[in-house]
Design a protein around this nucleic acid. Structure first.
Lengths: 110, 110
DNA sequence: CCTATATTTCTATGATACTAGAACCGTGGA
DNA sequence: TCCACGGTTCTAGTATCATAGAAATATAGG
């Protein structure tokens, strides 16, 4: 869990992860990620390995490319952990984003 | 936001924060924290400053003691950020903990 | 088999972060 | 005022992390 937090607590990796989230389960090949974010190959590989160790991304080989995609199950567990362990007796207070469709516009608990 | 992630991405600080969450708004004086977690004063002070910079804790002076308590608004915003930025098109998938009273016991999405 | 392309591993360097002893500052009581 | 106690800041040593060039590896096509 700490590993997942640490993995996201870094500008470059957070950017990579967010980009992958945008692209959903189909993901992106390493080259495209590096191109979009202007990260040299070795640096990128280093961060991808870090994200992989934290199980925040999933890698699959597709012909000559290696496609990375976000692992939604891990981020989900991370959010669950924060909600349960870091919100005390009133988790509701911490999850204003819970029902965004109904609550966001009315401004439930800003 | 990255600062908050980084602050929690460290065993000692996460332990401190969780302890403070347990104790709610009344918080704990530095000495008690150090005692409970067996952290020497200077190390503890270092981590408390880090948590403070990340706005994850609130410090108040109470006579000779300095009382730290968890800042629930920041952790709430952090959870909101993760939910909105890291869960893609289907935030629902990431917030199984949303309705813990009704879903936790039935085991909605483990 | 040879080459081009995609990505990783190796290596080195610089930058941050963590730990903790020692010295220092602020508050309240004698 | 002086002392004791609670915390912080200073300082230094160690460890871990981030960056990126160069070399290595793997895959697919000619």
């Amino acid at each position: 869990m700490i590993k997942a937090l640490a993995a996201l607590a870094q500008e470059t990796r957070l950017a990579i992860f967010r980009l992958l989230v945008e692209h959903g389960p189909s993901g992106l090949p390493v080259g495209k990620i590096g191109e979009r974010l202007a990260i040299p190959p070795s640096t990128l590989s280093f961060h991808l390995k870090e994200l992989d160790h934290a199980e925040l991304v999933i890698a699959r080989q597709e012909s000559r490319f290696i496609i990375y995609s976000a692992n939604f199950s891990t981020i989900s567990r991370l959010i669950g952990f924060l909600t349960e362990n870091c919100c005390g007796a009133a988790p509701q207070n911490c999850v204003a984003a819970c029902d965004p469709i109904n609550e966001a516009k009315t401004g439930g608990t800003p």
